[in-house]
Computed example of a mutant assay.
Amino acid sequence: MAKNLSNLRAPKKANIGRKRVGRGMGSGMGKTSTRGHKGQGSRSGSSLMRGFEGGQMPLHRRLPKRGFTNIFRVEYTVINLTRIASVAAEKGVSEIGLDDYKKLGLCSSKKELIKILGNGELTSAITISAHKFSKSAQEKIEKAGGKALVAGGEAVAKA
């Protein structure tokens, strides 16, 4: 049968209203207001912690602990040379400083630490400032005639 305006129907449960509790016997939710008789959740002020399983040992305590979180970990925003090459070609940029990453849409915040990875190729000479460079990125930048500057502005030393 073809669907047309005469036989359209709302999906199941689309038009069900909010549960109106404690509004008399005719509502079907009067007297105990869906709380049942006596028991833990029947009184006012009753609230249970997240994950409470009625006194049974909760799942998050039954499972073994694994691994650890290094609180001294330093998070870097990684940017590949392909992204830098495409942005440089699009906007005509020959130099990318630490303030430019946000403006060019390469990262979401000025405060982020940036690491350049060597995935992709550079066709033009670009001077790039970042907090860290991978060896392959550094080589590709210098091969294209550009410079890799570590955060303070000094060129990356060749090892």
Rank of each mutant, 00 (worst) to 15 (best):
R83T: 08
R83N: 12
R83F: 02
R83D: 14
R83K: 11
I84Q: 05
I84N: 00
I84C: 01
I84K: 04
A85G: 02
A85L: 01
A85P: 00
A85I: 00
A85R: 13
A85K: 07
A85W: 00
S86V: 05
S86I: 05
S86P: 00
S86M: 07
V87M: 09
V87E: 06
V87P: 00
V87A: 07
V87S: 06
A88K: 06
A88S: 15
A88V: 10
A89G: 12
A89S: 09
A89H: 07
A89Q: 13
E90H: 11
E90W: 00
K91Q: 15
K91C: 09
G92R: 09
G92F: 10
G92Y: 07
G92L: 08
G92T: 11
V93H: 08
V93A: 10
V93S: 08
V93W: 06
V93F: 02
V93D: 00
S94H: 14
S94P: 01
S94T: 15
S94A: 15
S94C: 12
S94M: 12
S94V: 14
S94W: 05
S94Y: 13
S94Q: 14
E95K: 13
E95S: 15
E95R: 15
E95P: 01
E95N: 12
E95C: 13
I96W: 02
I96Q: 06
I96T: 09
I96M: 04
I96S: 07
G97H: 11
G97M: 10
G97I: 10
G97P: 03
G97R: 14
G97Q: 11
L98N: 12
L98H: 11
L98P: 06
L98F: 07
L98Y: 06
D99N: 14
D99L: 12
D100C: 03
D100E: 15
D100Y: 02
D100Q: 12
D100I: 04
D100M: 13
Y101L: 11
Y101H: 04
K102N: 08
K102Q: 12
K102D: 04
K102C: 01
K103I: 13
K103M: 03
K103Y: 02
K103D: 12
L104R: 03
L104N: 01
L104E: 09
L104Q: 09
L104K: 03
L104A: 04
G105Y: 09
G105H: 11
G105A: 10
G105K: 10
L106R: 08
L106H: 06
L106G: 04
L106N: 07
L106C: 09
L106K: 07
L106A: 06
C107F: 01
C107L: 05
C107W: 00
C107G: 00
C107N: 09
C107Q: 04
S108Y: 02
S108D: 15
S108F: 07
S108C: 00
S108K: 15
S108E: 14
S108M: 10
S109N: 13
S109C: 08
S109I: 02
S109K: 14
K110G: 01
K110M: 09
K110H: 09
K111Y: 03
K111H: 05
K111C: 05
E112S: 12
E112K: 12
E112G: 01
E112D: 11
E112I: 01
L113Q: 08
L113D: 03
L113Y: 08
L113M: 11
L113R: 15
I114Y: 03
I114D: 06
I114V: 15
I114P: 00
I114Q: 04
K115A: 14
K115G: 08
K115V: 08
K115I: 11
I116A: 02
I116G: 02
I116M: 02
